[in-house]
Design a protein around this nucleic acid. Sequence first.
DNA 1: CTTCTGGAAGGAGTA
DNA 2: AGTACTCCTTCCAGA
Length: 867
Amino acid sequence: MGSGHKEPEFDFSLMFEYGSRGGEMEMEKEAFSYTPNVSLSLPLGMATPCLASQYHNLQSSPVISVSSCHQASYGLHESTMAPNYYFSGLRPNGAPPLERPRIEITSYGQMPEEQVEESGTMGPVAKRVNIVTLTLPSADGYRDPSSLSPASSCNSEASYESGFYNYENSPQNSPWQSPCVSPKGSSSLMLSCPPHGHAPGPSPRHSPSTSPNDDIGNHGKRKYSFNGTPYGHAPGMSPNHSPGASPQGSPRLEEGWLGTTNQYTNSAIVAAINALSTDGFPDLVDGVPNKSRKTSVEHNPSMSLKVEPANDDAGTEHGQEDYTNSNRMPFKKESYCSGFLDVPPHPYSWPKPKPYLSPSLPALDWQLPSCSGPYNLQIEVQPKSHHRAHYETEGSRGAVKALSGGHPVVQLYGYMESEPLTLQLFIGTADDRLLRPHAFYQVHRITGKTVSTASHEAMQSNTKVLEIPLLPENNMRAIIDCAGILKLRNSDIELRKGETDIGRKNTRVRMVFRVHINQPNGRTVSLQVASNPIECSQRSAQELPLVEKQSLDSYPASGGKRMLLSGHNFLPESKVMFVEKAQDGHHVWETEANVDKESRKSTSLVVEIPPYRNQRISSSVNVSFYVCNGKRKRSQYQRFTYLPCNVPMIKTEPADDYESRMSIHANPYFGQQRLPTMMPLDEPEPCMVASYAPCVSRPTPMPYSSPSSSPKLHDLSPVPFPKCLSNSPTHSTMPGGMASMQDPSTHHGLALPSSPDPVSLTMHHPQGSPHLGSPSYHPLYPNSSPSSSPTSHPSTPGAAAESPYLATFGSAQPRGSPPTLVADDHTSPALPVTIKQEPQELDQMYLDDVNEIIRNDLSCTSSHGHS
DNA sequence: CTTCTGGAAGGAGTA
DNA sequence: AGTACTCCTTCCAGA
């Protein structure tokens, strides 16, 4: 990143606050890749070099926020989370975070009526006076978490409520996906609060991270993307190929992003203004990757007056213009892409659910909570962890099934109205980043005699969305037997302009369900819940071991206890390795656990918890383990925590609460994992309890394994499976984890009562603390099942998370804090520590390389930009 | 005949 | 640069 930046550090700290951390590297990434989802910072002159770079990343999308965002309303529900995240937002230096210059534009309901469309819901909206706040980013702002500011105020709202605000406008457009600059996004009025509250902090931040990740992940690609000619280079690919599939085709190319971005930068304000009336920043349009554009277009229907340049991508995309059917807004030309996802314009006659459609809905990459107020959207029956997706060249491989043999079931609780709703389903990512539509997979509508659930396809952005009626008569419960998964060719997708993800080994997805509930007050509550990860490749499903559950999440350092692992593909030769990673991803310790051969089955393994390398830890230590069936055939990292043997057993409330909550919400996800669904083979351990519970219990949305982003990570990281969720990337020990771990000097030791050693409790440690909580809590997804939050970053511990954490902190370190590790090493005679550099470490190295590249890139670009 | 599946060949991409 | 693997995509065949 910016070598020249100062910001970085500062960002880091902030980030930590959020608790999201994927790792140092990630931090860096985040730092420069901020994608302000919501808030955009338009670079003004003040822009620091960073800006340029940031823009380069394309991550940033100009956000125009509606200042009026109901902040007040936000935070009502989950106030818990918000607080911390939005913490005052003071910068380290004490400067108010929100100082970014901003331009407020007040528009009077100008949404094009067409856009408003019939949806009654929008009506009011359109007419409202919208005050758009154009946030001008200062460099700081950009990175500064506080920049979220708007959000900050809004945060915790669990739900995405829109009052006057049109979803359409929503910025959402995916920050992650594409260059944020996405015109569209810009065009739309953005709420200041991003994801509404949910993610106050994180989301925005994440986004950055996300994006960065992408970049990183796609190293190669990324380079190109910087220039704006991302994949243009790859001529070879070509193609188009697939009938439909290809995004339109193609590779288009593009005028370089640089040009665009810079332009953008320079004329940010103008652009922003234009955005209001036009669809977005025209300038950007060209530069914007198809994907983004399309997305944006769609999303911002209301605002979109703009027509894309003829040549623009539009050309490439054949348009399919209006494919919008019924309720969708007619897209302008660019509509979206490609043919490939086209949805047949069929007349949709679904009487039932009211067509609530998308025009005003939040972008698919927005992180939404699973519950809000009385409403709670849950996945009652999770899909199987494997489902071989079909290519367009093959026939359907059927609907996604449930483990039980049936099909996934989703239910909305708390809805007492008699009006049917529409449940939306799309295929989302399952990596460690924030949940977003999966670029390489699409939901596929299944019909036939065996399908009992009606469904309707729609396109939203480049994502196919299956709309399923949620009927009161069915208790607002839907059996998802009408959804299959289509695999798009990697080459087709990677050629899309703006696409930064790579398809190779990026084969895990999640089914994402959304429901939008109109409220009497005119607002709309949008809820979302994501399923457990689903491995969609043929091979992986057959060979990679998958750990779905573990009977214990933590145990005293002495080890010796047996732990039951449930999952798939366990072989006689399967090994279980316990690993402790330093923040940089290096393995600080790795040992093979004894597996009870006799009790082994293909779906279960009994493993003896190995003693931790240091029997005298004063605070818990987070490690991870994985099942290995051979080279490259490893399960995803599973989380495990070693507890100090003498820890006072204090059972904290949080734990209970959490659990109860979990049970209620059924976080199907990895909840299982996190929650000891399985009884420990042995009796409960005292040690386990304590403050830990909370941590442990938290379901982690993301796979712990991949701190980094995407594809790449996938490669490195062992398994791409479900359980991952439970393990959150957040692990302190994980790469993303604590920076502090490795460097003893960094610890800020807080002596715990129980521990004589000045263990560094990371409480204050920026890096450390986040991790702790992170695993499962994600501010963004307060109650939502972990599923929804994929972030690799340790998620930011939601307020909720934090609370417990802090509360219990004194007695025991919550989630093993890494710091402890360090301390231990020093203070006690630990077991021999084996420091092993594993291939996985490559992740880190890889990241380093990438960062280096990025730095170079940025420096170049920034200089250009400024010049 | 169509749909759903499991398997696997071949080529491309990686390590 | 060459080799050994992996992974992706397309085909084939059976239910």
